[in-house]
Design a binder for these strands. Structure first.
Lengths: 338, 338
DNA sequence: CTGTTAGCGCGTTCAT
DNA sequence: ATGAACGCGCTAACAG
């Protein structure tokens, strides 16, 4: 392994001078600088991040803690974060929590152990607060992505669940739907709470009744867990929904699969819409009506704010970025027919 | 920061003993072990990976170097790799090269600098050989994923391009197609070469002529670059293809988009099929006929082999795993009608 | 079974 | 503008 000592010898200077050249810190004369740089190239020197970390406490590593890279929303978040990280000279560690608080805690420990400079995190649930406190304790800055945690002060990038929910429900209401069910994520996740609240508010705004039977709980994972769906469909016909609002894309997919198993057609028999888009093939066969969020920007902007925080170029006050969502009407939603 | 010295003091032992407990190395009496473990928990000690690396040269970090996490194939590869890495106590650094050799070289330097224990890499092109040599030079084991590089000895996980191509072409031939075009990736990527070779062989097997005009070059990226497509469609009618085999999913998507712009219907006017599946929404509206590869297993198996290599539990001979692909017939391919 | 010594590669601090 | 000494947190090698 080539060290600064090797190139110091080669360039006839002290290791300290080499260090200064590498880090562009302190004053070095033009002459010695080029001498050192030549030696660096000749010997193919690559600095050792670990050694550097030990004294400087900077690893140049960020981490992205999300629930599942397989969800197209997070895939794009990851790409955005990685692009910005690379651009700024940082690496990105990927962590999938699967909405599991224990997995998340494991990862947080790993990240502390690794000495990452900062973390972009979509907390798995409200309990994640303890993990954020751990990061605080070790002075590791973090950005909250997509989900909020009460009582935590930090920079964040969120979507507008309230606005998005309203938009997509108005679309359904426009289409004549009056009995709209929601299949939500778990209520210990902020987005699910916000979407449920907005769901109820919007219905009230349009003088539509809120039926308890039409509010279902599921989870955000890519796993069939819609056993409740049968209940929903078995309610007396007058109350049976003509449309379903799924709180995220995975829920929508599972719901539609389940409906089809039961020979219920979408959108002829029931409309299904959701939060978050599906990529990249969705244009080929436009089907699911969604409220899309600018996922790439979640990651990109989040990484940018994080790096600014790390490098102390951020404004002292924490920034809360709210990114707009966009209604995309496709074919899974049709006019109400009952 | 809590160090082994702190817990050594607390437990009334030497730092070395603490180290032994943490690493389960050497002999430690049951009594002192528990004493030390208690202290570790009380003080909430988390080992410092960098310090550990400096002496042991083990970072417990792997890297996944792929072309684009946004491609559903690689999304799943990443998930598989991350799952296995986590299970074995490793972290995963994500690198997107965008098929760009310079980006790839940048990343390789970063990885050396970071001191990753091993790399899973889909080389961007044949020129990547120099980057693999760099890894060799620094004794960083790596696994080749999906693409081969001549003259490099290492473990690898590949799909069967020959078999897959044959299967999907036979499907088209069964449907009565005799003029089948290929829109391929760049020929400095092994999979593109193999698919082209298999394309020609299969046509010959079935006594079908190979027309130069029906062989197009594109790239594997998610970017519209099918300007050649017009040429393909403007050839005299007898030679005009009734089906297109796209060498990957992104090419297929771009091709279909372009066809639609020109008001050419798929599959009524022309069939389009490709290598690699689209997830996770594809089941909702089954459209693209593909040869799917077990992407998750690429990553999972690759990570497993890599870790075995790192931890010296791998067999001395390099392993070449070939994973089977599977034809999935959907609606983008129909019977030939001309 | 346990402890001591030394050094990994680098940057900080203080000199010169 | 440049250098020397020290220590970051940990483990390998050796002693006891």
């Amino acid at each position: 392994m080539v060290t600064i000592y090797d190139i110091a010898t080669k360039a006839n200077v002290s290791p300290m001078t080499v260090s200064r050249v590498i880090n562009k810190s302190g004053k070095v004369s033009e002459a010695t600088r080029t001498k050192v740089e030549d030696a660096i190239h000749e010997l193919n020197y690559i600095p050792n991040t670990s050694a550097r970390y030990l004294t400087s406490k900077k690893s140049k590593i960020l981490s992205l803690v999300i629930t599942d890279i397989t969800n197209p929303f997070f895939t794009k978040v990851a790409r955005g974060a990685e692009d910005k990280a690379k651009q700024m000279g940082y690496s990105l560690l990927l962590c999938n929590t699967d909405e599991d608080i224990n997995k998340e805690s494991d990862y947080i420990n790993m990240l502390v152990s690794t000495g990452v400079d900062g973390v972009l995190i979509t907390p798995s649930q409200d309990k994640s607060k303890k993990n954020l406190r751990t990061l605080n304790k070790y002075n590791i800055p973090f950005i909250l992505l997509d989900r909020k945690i009460d009582g935590i002060e930090c920079d964040s990038v969120h979507g507008d669940s309230q606005e998005g929910t309203r938009k997509i429900l108005e679309h359904l209401i426009d289409k004549g739907h009056r009995k709209i069910a929601i299949i939500n994520g778990p209520l210990d996740v902020s987005t699910a709470r916000e979407r449920q609240k907005a769901y109820m508010e919007t219905l009230r705004t349009y003088n539509l009744p809120v039926h308890e039977e039409l509010i279902l709980q599921s989870n955000y994972k890519n796993k069939d867990t819609n056993s409740d769906l049968s209940k929903l469909l078995s309610v007396q016909l007058e109350k049976r929904p003509t449309a379903i609002f799924a709180a995220n894309n995975f829920i929508a997919i599972n719901t539609i699969k389940e409906l089809r198993k039961q020979n219920i057609r979408v959108p002829e028999d029931i409309s299904v819409v959701c939060f978050d888009d599906l990529d990249p093939s969705i244009d080929l066969n436009p089907f699911l009506t969604v409220v899309a969020q600018p996922a790439y920007h979640f990651g990109f902007t989040g990484a940018q704010m994080l790096i600014e925080r790390i490098e102390k170029t951020a404004p002292p006050d924490f920034r809360k970025i709210v990114l707009p969502s966009k209604l995309i009407v496709r074919n899974s939603s049709a006019s109400a027919h009952i």
